[in-house]
Write a protein that binds this DNA or RNA. Structure first.
Lengths: 160, 160
DNA sequence: ACTGAAAAAGAGCGCCG
DNA sequence: CGGCGCTCTTTTTCAGT
């Protein structure tokens, strides 16, 4: 598990592709001051090495009617014979769950959830989430405003 | 603020582009059973309407040495003459902050932060975050495991 | 609105300093 | 490794249903 070393070309490629993931390699090459071929080679290498894991369209949630965005913290029963794996597998299949992490602190899981309305939120929490085996309690916090991101990973540390 | 109506073509385009944001329009067209031109038109329209806000490379944080991922909740002083705008502006400029939301609950802000090491986390919280005007207290929770996402927005509700 | 064909732009290749 | 020139694919535009 060693880190690859990044040169300035690669760092700038990552910066640019994080902002515009569809930018043609030819434009990339021009912007970072490199010719077409070496730029394409690095582009390929970054993906091969797992540094670029893929590309995604950023979709405006409000534009598709997801007016309610929440973070839900979930605590499982400690003596869970129904081990966390079941909960994890269930979460993976829930379309409303945009992201999920296991965490330190009072709760075991943090879920990032988007639904069209407060009624849908209620239905999701009451009838789908709390019905899962091993769920002890949940703590829901509404998002009031999106200040920043997501979809951008810090890169500043790469050039120190 | 009305929602556009989505047909099956557009929904599938969003699904595909969320998974592979660099897929050529020609391939998209083939996969959803449409000819080149109308597919390209919808592709353009989705961006124009703000439904697709852009495209991003998904970067593996561990691959670039960001070994510590945390969520930090921040509470501001209630009598903040230094209004939240100053805090927001500061957060926008902090590279370590991958995402930020304002929230209901005991804390005002939720910050998604990635840093190379625990030492960097300490330095960030102590010397940069808590130094900001109006910050009353912070609550930090470490990410133990990435279960799902981020970068994918629910689309299931669009087709009922 | 979709189709089909042209022109323009980009990607992938071998080959050479 | 970086650059150059070639072919093939993809995008874009402009017709015609």
């Amino acid at each position: 598990m060693k880190l690859p070393q990044f040169d300035e070309f690669e760092i700038r490629m990552l910066e640019i592709l994080q902002h515009d993931g569809r930018k043609p390699v030819s434009e990339l090459a021009q912007e970072i001051g490199l010719s077409n071929t070496p730029c394409a080679r690095r582009f390929e290498a970054l993906q091969q090495a797992g540094i670029i894991k893929g590309f995604s369209a950023r979709i405006g949630r409000r534009a598709i009617g997801l007016m309610v965005e929440v973070f839900i913290q979930v605590r499982l029963t400690s003596h869970s014979d129904e081990s966390p794996e079941k909960f994890i597998a269930a979460v993976q299949r829930m379309d409303e769950v945009s992201a999920c992490w296991t965490m330190t602190g009072d709760y075991d899981f943090l879920l990032h959830v988007m639904v069209p309305s407060v009624d849908d939120l209620n239905a999701f929490v009451m009838h789908r989430l709390m019905r899962l085996a091993g769920v002890r309690d949940v703590h829901t916090q509404l998002v009031l405003q999106n200040i920043k991101g997501p979809g951008h990973v810090p890169l500043g540390h790469l050039r120190g």
